[in-house]
Design a protein around this nucleic acid. Structure first.
Lengths: 232, 232
DNA sequence: GTACAATCCTTTGTATACAAAATGCAATTA
DNA sequence: TAATTGCATTTTGTATACAAAGGATTGTAC
């Protein structure tokens, strides 16, 4: 069992939030796999707390769609189907487009500067070839754009939707041939925002999502095939 | 205190879900007012359950944004500010447009029939002038469109965002001059979907939201003025 | 060997008990 | 009179206890 599955006591939060963050992280990184049962006493012992904060954390994960409740049987990690992912991406496509459009109107000069830096950093990161570094730079870049909208609700929703695909992030970055596409897509978005060209920015954002979709769906089909082969 | 603030024992659900639905309803109808504290023992006594299900329900409301947690002080009903509502509407505008676009592509002939009926029903409802009836017909109409997308995630998100504005629904329906606008807007959306004209449908949906925004914002400003006057 | 049934064990659902923090109030002092 | 300190009360945060439901296992009968 992985060793990063522990409570982070540095945090000065109610236990339920610590547990919530811990479990969520474990699910998104794939440490807790789809279909796996979340048993309260088990988790409580493992995390060194009582069942109460565990239960409260599960209630939040339930609403977030990361776990599904089965009556009288408890929680299990939500299955990701191809359909559910397409649903998520369909929504993200619209919201990401909205995001860059709003960013065109509202981005400050400071944020423009930060965006430029993040773009350069991303290009550097791809040069290293290290997947973790690239993923980090990618998140940083998107974060700046999302925050530039100034719309709290939008920020929250996009973050939540992005999370649903976190498990596939690594594969998706590895998958992209030489990362050149990725760099270009980012640069296109970045430049459109600087120019304040909403239409172009939205189109670039949609293209970006579409390419991710291709790559992730391919990944899912691969995984499913492997699972089927295993069963036989 | 209102008397529809009771648990509905007909439901065959865990108490936490019954409590969740009850509290949510109370918040959305305005029975629990923004800023009002949600005290656990108090609620527990009132609903005739222990604190545990109350707490679990509050965790879900917290994630849904209907209550805000203050550390070591508990939950209170979330304040609705003009900004937060504009944020919500900005997102809904994009998602409603997406909705009707998808509906154009995916609506079945059965659903077309249902849509036509709902549209007629709405027109009849406006004729009665009864706000509750109109609101009901409005929800029914929108529901059909949203469900026609076949996108579970989108359905869930739109429902959640709509809820945030439930408190203002009545005022907004009353506000619309003679309801003629409302009927026309609906008919425009309905016809565009039947014709499969995505562009027109999206534009109509956006207009529909924009008009609601106008009306709701006006309402909020009115309320705020009244509050200010009270304080003096 | 298979099917069915009784029993046990696990796990959730709910209630309650206890500890710690925060708030409000009162008393005392400057 | 105003301010501050200390105490009491309230309320949350966490743990634990108890009940009921489900599932699994074992034993028995055919």
């Amino acid at each position: 069992m992985g060793d990063n599955f522990t409570v982070n006591m540095d945090e000065f939060l109610p236990l339920r939030d610590v547990v919530f963050n811990t479990l969520r992280r474990a699910i998104l990184t794939g440490e807790l796999k789809p279909g796996e049962r979340l048993m309260e006493i088990h988790l409580a012992n493992r995390l060194g707390v009582s069942r109460t904060p565990i239960r409260e954390a599960i209630r939040k994960l339930e609403l977030e769609g990361l776990v599904t409740m089965i009556p009288r049987r408890g929680a299990e990690v939500a299955q990701i189907t191809e359909k559910s992912l397409q649903d998520v991406l369909e929504v993200r496509r619209a919201l990401d487009a909205l995001c860059v459009e709003l960013a065109c109107d509202r981005i400050t000069s400071d944020e423009k500067e930060a965006l430029k830096n993040a773009c350069d950093e991303f290009e550097k990161a791809t040069a290293t070839g290290d997947v973790t570094t690239i993923a980090g730079a990618d998140v940083a870049l998107h974060d700046i754009i999302v925050r530039a909208t100034g719309n709290q609700r939008l920020i929250q929703l996009i973050n939540n939707l992005s999370e649903q695909m976190y498990r596939y992030r690594f594969e998706y970055i590895k998958d992209e041939k030489g990362h050149d596409n990725l760099v270009n897509e980012h640069r296109m978005i970045y430049e459109s925002i600087l120019q304040g060209d909403k239409e172009k920015a939205a189109e670039a954002a949609r293209l970006h999502i579409d390419n991710q979709e291709q790559s992730i769906i391919r990944q899912i089909r691969l995984e499913r095939e492997q699972q089927l082969r295993k069963k036989k």
